[in-house]
Write a protein that binds this DNA or RNA. Sequence first.
DNA 1: AATGAATGAGGGTTCATTCAT
DNA 2: CATGAATGAACCCTCATTCAT
Lengths: 230, 230, 230, 230
Amino acid sequence: MNDCSFIAKRGRLTYIVRTMKAAMKKRTAPKEERQQQLIQATIRSVARNGLSDTTMATVASEAGLSQGIINLHFQSKERLLVETLSYIADEYRTAWEQALSSAGDEPADKLAALVSVDFKKPVCHPNKLAVWFAFWGETKSRPTYRRICAMRDMAYRKEMVQVCHELIVQGGYQDVDAETVTACLSAMTSGCWLDLLTNPRSMSRLQAKRICMSYLVTTFPRHFAERSDK
Amino acid sequence: MNDCSFIAKRGRLTYIVRTMKAAMKKRTAPKEERQQQLIQATIRSVARNGLSDTTMATVASEAGLSQGIINLHFQSKERLLVETLSYIADEYRTAWEQALSSAGDEPADKLAALVSVDFKKPVCHPNKLAVWFAFWGETKSRPTYRRICAMRDMAYRKEMVQVCHELIVQGGYQDVDAETVTACLSAMTSGCWLDLLTNPRSMSRLQAKRICMSYLVTTFPRHFAERSDK
Amino acid sequence: MNDCSFIAKRGRLTYIVRTMKAAMKKRTAPKEERQQQLIQATIRSVARNGLSDTTMATVASEAGLSQGIINLHFQSKERLLVETLSYIADEYRTAWEQALSSAGDEPADKLAALVSVDFKKPVCHPNKLAVWFAFWGETKSRPTYRRICAMRDMAYRKEMVQVCHELIVQGGYQDVDAETVTACLSAMTSGCWLDLLTNPRSMSRLQAKRICMSYLVTTFPRHFAERSDK
Amino acid sequence: MNDCSFIAKRGRLTYIVRTMKAAMKKRTAPKEERQQQLIQATIRSVARNGLSDTTMATVASEAGLSQGIINLHFQSKERLLVETLSYIADEYRTAWEQALSSAGDEPADKLAALVSVDFKKPVCHPNKLAVWFAFWGETKSRPTYRRICAMRDMAYRKEMVQVCHELIVQGGYQDVDAETVTACLSAMTSGCWLDLLTNPRSMSRLQAKRICMSYLVTTFPRHFAERSDK
DNA sequence: AATGAATGAGGGTTCATTCAT
DNA sequence: CATGAATGAACCCTCATTCAT
């Protein structure tokens, strides 16, 4: 009986100790966790300082870790940056794939979902936008960056063309071209992102979405006319 | 006495020599010309190497001049960059102002001219796009850059809103909103620029313009329907 | 009660497992053996990478062990290096002492044995030469290294002077000075080592020995004339 | 008259000013001069701190110049080191070539000159020896160093073989082999250098030379017997 | 006893800026 | 005006050492 109480107490103690340790910041962490932590710190640093003022030191300090840690986990600064870009590209892809799969079967709903996800939080966080543009800015001189960006783009567009095509067939929009709509829409998206980045005062995520939706309204009037919501 | 005459002669000689040297290099407004030369070199360097790999050395060598020259004319690297950004912003503004003034009085023509100029050479040269994105990439952490970009944008949009408004009134497009169209159109422009930058293979200036024009066709059908040209 | 027996069993099991693991790696004197292992790894690493590119990591990996192991056994890198130098100095001494003791009583034989051992495998292995020269190279700035080297030298020379003296007396080489011969001979030895190190292609251990023996032939003709062998 | 005194004063002043400037260490110097200065500083630093503790900082401070100067003139530390090794190799070669050319035509004199120069100041300065051994110590892992050392060696030996051959022919030393003598002699030289490096207390340049000369006495008795001098 | 993640001082190198020429 | 040698702060990276496990 007292054994039980002891165990109970012991369990409680263990719990407390574990909590304390966690609070003291684990000195050692699973490899992948540390890498994630550093990628997140990189995103914050790029957003805060810009890519050209992001140094090993700013990232490490943003992560609350020591100088050498990045080379320990990523070998070089360049690899950290590539990994960071890859991370947000993956995140982006995952986001619209999920949005798509939970949008139902109606092509119009799918299209709306695709546009929607571009202006929702995880993907459209100011920091993420800053990172995208930071890398786009170096794209011309860094084939590696370009490749990653291009891949993200291609997958996204391919899907959107598909969805547009379905919608065109279904809705009988004979004189609308799926490729063109996709080009317009994805250009508008990144254009709006630029606005969100440079004029955060006069542009909000909601407004940005409305702008893109307005395009859908004019293009597919019978499917988007009344829905100004969401 | 003869001493004096000698000195006079000597001063004269020095002057002549100096003048000849100057003539061999340039003739007028040396100061501003040099600055222009350096700004052009900066544009090329940013396009070639990226902003973070653009150093005083890369710019100087791109200009075929010596190390210290930039500090001599711009005091600091930061100022050179700001001047460069200002330069392409001014160039951009001048370009659409000219386009507008030679477009005639028809609002539709003016709008077409505005879109057109965004995808014509001086403004839409690959190097210029690279520079724009390079600076946009640093925008979040550099208020100065943001301010310059924002001003360029505002003037352009103000004008476009005006033109759209005229067109709406003239064409009786009651359910079209000038602000929204402007937002769509200018977002599409920068979005297409991004494509030109990152996928130069699969996107051309001509295509980009067509994409934007397609938007005008759907939005103002009675004014842009038949003109797929130019 | 059964709890206790379980714990006992468990303790026993742990012990067995641990013992088995130990047995799979080593059996006795773990401490000294580990140190030896690390010293051997150091020798290989210095030979392969040079002293200035020998790091705790190269040594540990050469030993097939983990990072922290060296500090565990040697406290510091400096101590590892000193122990390594001491080790090859000891090995050297042991080698010629053994050679001497198995050479018989004839001074000429002893002298030949001393020369011989300098060019035989354990002592004259390429790796060992590399290590000697690596440390000699740092000798001027590291009194500790110098001291160890000097001691090795002194003992060796003292013995050789002794042997030479015997030979001079025995052979009646009145105009030969034991000290000088020793100086010549030991200089030639290290000089030949240098050649073995830097021109391994054009110099072999056998040649090196012949060169040194040729000196003995000219110096002590009546004792070394006919023996070109071994 | 007062003019004269003025001129005198002025001359004096000029002199003082020039001296002061020189004392303030010329900010700018001919390229080759700076490189020489840095090579000399490297030699001192390697001698003082050893090769593995010679850093850009120790060299720069030894030269009384700033951190960045070495990369300005040598691009990298590695190149500075190679250049330094090349320098002392060249110096060595020049030294014995000069010694040879001022030694007259007698082979014995030439041989004596060759041995002599190895133990005279510019070449046999403690710092130079330290540098030689520092590089020899890294020879096994650095092909570049090895190549430079090997070339120095080859030229020297080739010459010595030649001289020995002349002497053998001239003196009728039929049973002496030029190659062997050269091998012995040059081994003894570097062996003595090692002694000078590690036991500066018990070995002097003069003694070292005597040791080598003693070898010549035994090998070429009819030419070197009486000359213990120089 | 052994591991290997983490640290942080210090290494080589770059580069904006200064300044004598 | 223009040059380019020189500076030195700050960068990225390495590595001896520590320490929780």
